[in-house]
Simulated scan of single mutants.
Amino acid sequence: MAKISPKKRHTIRKSKQSKIFAALREEIGESAEAYTGKSIEMVETTGETTVFLVDRHPVIMEMGEIVFPTLRGAVERPFPEKNITVDAGAIAFMAKGADVMRPGIVKISPDVKKDHPVLIIEERYGKPLAVGIALYDAEEMELCETGKVIKTIHHVGDDLWNMEI
């Protein structure tokens, strides 16, 4: 991800809120209800990412057509859908933004779809490490033995994580 910083910040209309939450519901189902709040603001950035603040917390991001919780959102408001669990050996690599390789995965949520976002969590404490795009459906990923299976788009310590709003 290129260096990003906030450009504009403004409250969004109800119609835009409806579209964002419909897209989020499409990705994570009924867990999207946890991401509603009294005030919703949109923060345009210098990068490709738009961040949505729910009650002043950066919990939703939009990258192109993808609407998904940010890592901060996943930490504050956990959800069980679209999760990939990695072993302890993968944590150091994930913290540097590495893509996920099949040998490091210990559990795959059955609702993972190719070209859709997934939350990557660590095995021991269940904490979110990154958000990525699945390169395979869950069934295909289970059959893989080697190679890259998830392209990381947001990780702990990246510009989006560190962005001051």
Rank of each mutant, 00 (worst) to 15 (best):
A2Q: 15
S5D: 12
P6L: 15
K8D: 08
K8F: 12
H10P: 03
H10Y: 13
I12K: 09
R13K: 13
K16S: 14
K16D: 14
S18Q: 15
I20A: 12
R25E: 10
E26K: 12
E27N: 11
E27L: 05
I28T: 08
G29I: 06
E30L: 05
E30D: 11
E33M: 06
T36S: 01
G37S: 03
K38S: 05
S39I: 08
I40C: 08
I40N: 00
M42Q: 10
M42S: 11
M42T: 09
V43M: 10
T45W: 05
T45M: 06
E48M: 11
T49Q: 13
T49I: 15
T50S: 12
V51A: 07
F52V: 02
D55N: 05
H57M: 14
H57S: 13
I60R: 10
M61Q: 11
M61T: 09
M63A: 14
E65I: 12
E65A: 15
I66A: 10
V67T: 14
V67E: 07
T70I: 09
R72N: 11
G73H: 10
A74T: 10
A74S: 13
R77E: 05
P78S: 07
F79G: 01
E81Y: 08
N83R: 15
N83G: 03
D87C: 05
A88K: 09
G89S: 00
A90P: 01
A90G: 00
F93P: 00
F93Q: 04
F93W: 02
M94P: 00
R102S: 04
P103S: 01
P103Q: 02
G104T: 04
I105Y: 00
V106A: 00
V106Y: 03
I108F: 04
P110D: 10
V112K: 04
V112N: 05
K113M: 14
K114C: 09
D115E: 14
V118L: 04
V118I: 10
L119Y: 03
I121F: 06
E122S: 00
R124D: 11
R124G: 05
R124A: 14
G126N: 04
I133G: 11
I133C: 01
Y136G: 04
D137R: 04
A138F: 11
A138N: 03
E139M: 09
M141P: 01
E142Y: 02
L143F: 08
L143W: 02
E145N: 13
E145H: 13
T146K: 15
T146F: 14
G147P: 09
K148C: 13
I150Q: 08
I153R: 09
V156A: 13
V156L: 12
V156R: 15
G157T: 06
M163F: 03
E164C: 12
E164I: 14
